[in-house]
Design a binder for these strands. Structure first.
Length: 581
RNA sequence: CGGGAUGUGGCUCAGUCUGGUAGAGCGCUGCGUUCGGGACGCAGAGACCGGAGGUUCAAAUCCUCUCAUCCCGACCA
């Protein structure tokens, strides 16, 4: 491809509305343009990169035995009503009406459609297992789109759905996808890690997210330094405290009131009573799905993991109780709630950790008052002790007990086991070996294709621009001709362009009438992993200069033996990325 | 939806407080000189200042409403 006739509108300055690196660079390198909030046009270069990601994903899906389909983007409301998600999915679902006033939505995911597609068709266990996937533009009306391609409202996603006859089969399908994902992300050239995750709105009993490791990631991952354990912070279980339960300890004296004027927060109470925050129990009043109040007890220095609580109580949404509710339930202003002497009957959950000792300080459900010498087992009714808090970096690995560390990640893939959640609601059944009707056991598997391009840049860039992994670079090689009026150089560059093209290697040939500096800067900005520079001096010496964009290393390739030297050098570059060609 | 901010040539911004009829850099067009890390000179094109209403002799500037975009919180590939 000749740059003189290609459309790459590069920008010298960062666009004002871009915050993160990938967004700035995608804009500056002329790969995307924003149409409106969270919705982008893909320009030739950006689309090439996206298509390359898609191709690799497609190949790995096919290799894993999945079959590509293309499902409608506009979906009738009926289907969503069937599964209850018409209400549950909320405002993220962009709803539209047709001319007859019928309700539709733009597909944010396709569990309903795919289940509907197979429910009439798969009638026998002999037709199972089956896995169908598509690569398609999705629409989610994100509350706050941001960071360019990282969190758009419109984005390209690969979504796959597996159907099995039983849990055992479903688990096989799940791990098959898990392996396919590992293969795909490895081939793309990303540094990633699969971690345990919460399954969120899609549902299901367990799931993994694939995280691209990058400092700008929106998620935090807890991973073990010794074993394979890795989990999203919102999912990471906390190792259960060792030893016996001490919450009934008899040696503790009876609880008693203590005045704590104006001391509402943990810090204030601790300062007033001169105790440490780990001697106090934080009592959190929450509302489940806007209705049922629940009480969560956490050690004063810990943080509640709302997702763990949500999964425990079985609700959809957990929010902090407002002032009025707190007053109504505890009879005290915010800041003095406690599990002891609470008149109303509220489901109460306590973190495991609170079981390890007695003699706590808690709120007394009375203004300006706390209790001390509280023992949970003795003084109040706890419905359940459970893992409720957010893991901390000083915690040990919940699986092997060794040290853990926190890193930031960008979620680029998510695999779910759905079980029969959708097949039951939509009555998708088949006949098993005994002629008995059973619900299909499902799994769903997503990959954020457009997001991968952004995360690749997030992970690989420098002050001069993008540094694309070769497999997903818009073009693998830039050939920069410094010919100008020197016709010999131009002629040789044309010859090289021809040679490389014939090797079936994608090359961006910079034959523009621009000054050298402009060409160098653009090549660095766009981030072709390999650059070839042909100038007058080089031609005289019989060499073309080769630059590794990632390391900046320059090598001289002989023009005499170009094909061999270039091929070897190219192989080296791929190897530096840890990739085979 | 709450909290904060910004809308001025294609892009990045100044001008707004203290009203007097729009400016810079980059980019773009032409000519010339340059040509290994975003050149230089000369000559140009291009904005009714997000929109609507109001105040005023006069509004980018003041007031009201509105729209859009961005940032901070709950969602997610």
């Amino acid at each position: 491809m000749r740059l003189s006739s290609y459309y790459i509108p590069t920008l010298k300055e960062d666009p004002a509305d871009a915050e993160v690196m990938s967004h700035k660079l995608l804009m500056r390198a002329g790969m995307i343009r924003k149409l409106t909030s969270g919705i982008y046009s893909y320009l030739p270069l950006g689309l090439r990169s996206i298509n390359k990601v898609a191709r690799i994903v497609r190949e790995e899906m096919d290799r894993a035995g999945a079959m590509e389909v293309s499902l409608p983007m506009v979906q009738p409301a009926d289907l969503w009503v069937e599964t209850g998600r018409w209400d549950y999915y909320g405002k993220e679902l962009l709803r539209v009406k047709d001319r007859h006033g019928r309700d539709y939505c733009l597909g944010p995911t396709h569990e309903e459609v795919i289940t509907d597609l197979v429910r009439g068709e798969i009638k026998s266990y002999k037709q199972l297992p089956i896995n169908l996937y598509q690569i398609q533009t999705k629409f989610r009306d994100e509350i706050r789109p941001r960071f360019g391609l990282m969190r758009g409202r419109e984005f390209i996603m690969k979504d796959a759905y597996s159907f099995d006859k039983d849990d055992e089969g479903a688990e096989k399908s799940y791990w098959k996808m898990f392996e396919a994902y590992k293969a795909a992300f490895s081939r793309i050239g990303l540094c990633f890690k699969p971690v345990q995750a919460d399954s969120g709105a899609i549902g299901g009993d367990f799931s993994h997210e694939f995280m691209v490791l990058a400092d700008t990631g929106e998620d935090t991952i807890a991973s073990c330094k010794s074993c394979e354990f890795g989990a999203n912070l919102e999912k990471a279980k906390v190792a259960q405290p060792q030893g016996v339960c001490h919450c009934d300890a008899e040696q503790t004296s009876a609880f008693e009131e203590v005045e704590t004027p104006d001391a509402r927060t943990v810090d204030e109470v601790c300062a007033y009573l001169n105790i440490k925050s780990d001697q106090l129990i934080k009592t959190l009043l929450l509302k489940v799905d806007g209705k049922e109040p629940v009480l969560a007890l956490i050690r004063g220095d810990r943080e509640l993991n709302a997702i763990k609580l949500r999964n425990l109580v079985g609700g959809n949404e957990i929010e902090m109780a407002d002032e009025a509710l707190v007053k109504d339930l505890t009879g005290a202003p915010v800041g003095f709630a406690g599990p002891v002497t609470l008149s109303k009957n509220i489901r109460t959950f306590a973190d495991h950790e609170l079981c390890t000792k007695s003699d706590w300080v808690t709120g007394a459900n009375k203004a300006d008052t706390h209790y001390r010498h509280v023992s949970l087992g003795r003084d109040c009714e706890i419905d359940k002790f459970a893992d409720l808090r957010v893991i901390e970096e000083t915690d040990v690995c919940p699986e092997c007990g060794k040290e853990i560390e926190f890193t930031k990640g960008i979620e680029v893939g998510h695999v779910f086991r759905l079980g029969t959640k959708y097949s039951e609601k939509m009555d998708a059944t088949f006949l098993d070996e005994n002629g008995k009707a059973k619900h299909l056991v499902m799994g769903s598997y997503g990959i954020g294709v457009s997001r991968i391009v952004a995360s690749a840049i997030e992970q690989n860039h420098d002050e001069n621009g993008c540094i694309f992994p070769p497999p997903i670079a818009p073009f693998e090689v830039a050939l920069i001709s410094l010919g100008g009026k020197d016709e010999a150089v131009t002629a040789k560059a044309e010859e090289l362009y021809d040679i490389i093209s014939k090797l079936n290697i994608e090359v961006a040939y910079d034959d523009r009438k621009e000054r050298p500096g402009v060409k160098f800067a653009d090549a660095d900005l766009i981030g072709y992993p390999m650059q070839l520079v042909l100038g007058g001096k080089g031609l005289k010496n019989g060499i073309v200069e080769a630059k590794d964009r990632k390391t900046g290393e320059k090598t001289e390739l002989p023009l005499d033996d170009f094909v061999e030297a270039f091929t070897a050098w190219r192989e080296e570059i791929w190897a530096k990325w840890g990739l085979d060609m």
